[in-house]
Design a protein around this nucleic acid. Structure first.
Lengths: 161, 161
DNA sequence: GTTATTAAGGATATATAATATCCGTAATAG
DNA sequence: CTATTACGGATATTATATATCCTTAATAAC
């Protein structure tokens, strides 16, 4: 049980888009080349982000993607859920109802106790992701990435925007 | 991306085993019938629990499973990890290294900033699961389950131990 | 207008993992 | 000796993830 690799790709793409000069866009082709991933498949992830209104695509030459709102207003959770879906990773199939001792008419007033615990843990995961935004990430990256690489990459991007 | 249904089954089986009279065992066959799930496949989940030393199997007629330690010392996380594995659900494939601007010799002193956030969220999920034990669950179930069903099920189990 | 480029989305193929079943083995209680 | 059990290996089936291909409509540049 693993998150899709598209989640990783989407996060990295958003990190790049967050650093783009104002109003500029970057195409799927360039994002794919920058990250060394297949353009066609990455495109699906970007489309998911677009549908979730996290990024905004535009057509034609000089078209491409940019963030739909400021980095401070986009959380990791937004991006993860756009790609992976918002459903809990624990699915309760109500096997308690298969208990042969159970009266057929019996109705439960609460969801299964086991599911409640699993769902609460899922919420803890989501909370952790909700609390980190793209601007937080940008600050971290600025410290992590060597200045030379940072500058060279910015130049590479500038040539294509 | 969903947890395996075996996780749900394993948790329910452990809940039953936690309520078993001292020293008694219950077989895969009975656990499967009680939960309405395929015996052969459930067996794989129970084997995983056995390998993780959460339950203890014994052979022969009147054999079966019982918990390997007290319910207070078995957490949801123990059970989930036994079935689902302990690896983080986010896998970093280091796509940052595919950046064409990156000097080929460059070595990173830290793991990718995006991965760090994702891994922290994974830890939050695990923490929530680590903090709930089978004895906590037993207390909750006692309140949730109607006394009549509780008693009838206990009887059903008693006939088979 | 014409052309090249782009996002968007549908259709389809391939690979991997989840789900499920079957069988052989060794242990063990009656 | 027999029936029952956990355990593990092998295999089949189904679902999902991964990936590619193709068509369409928009649009910027010429």
């Amino acid at each position: 049980m693993q998150l899709k690799n598209q989640v990783e790709w989407a996060l990295h793409c958003c990190a790049i888009l967050a650093g783009l000069p104002d109003g500029k866009r970057l195409s799927t082709k360039d994002l794919a080349e920058l990250h060394g991933v297949p353009k066609e498949y990455l495109s699906k992830a970007l489309q998911a982000l677009s549908q979730a209104q996290i990024v905004e695509g535009s057509l034609g030459p000089s078209g491409g993607y940019r963030l739909a709102r400021t980095p401070a207003r986009i959380s990791f959770l937004d991006i993860v859920e756009a790609v992976e879906g918002g459903a809990s990773r624990f699915v309760c199939t109500e096997i308690r109802k298969n208990n042969p001792c159970r009266p057929s008419g019996l109705c439960d007033d609460k969801p299964c106790a086991i599911a409640r615990v699993m769902w609460a843990a899922d919420q803890a995961w989501r909370k952790a992701l909700r609390e980190v935004t793209l601007s937080d990430l940008a600050r971290t990256l600025e410290k992590d990435i060597p200045a030379a690489l940072w500058k060279k990459t910015a130049g590479w991007i500038a040539e294509r925007t």
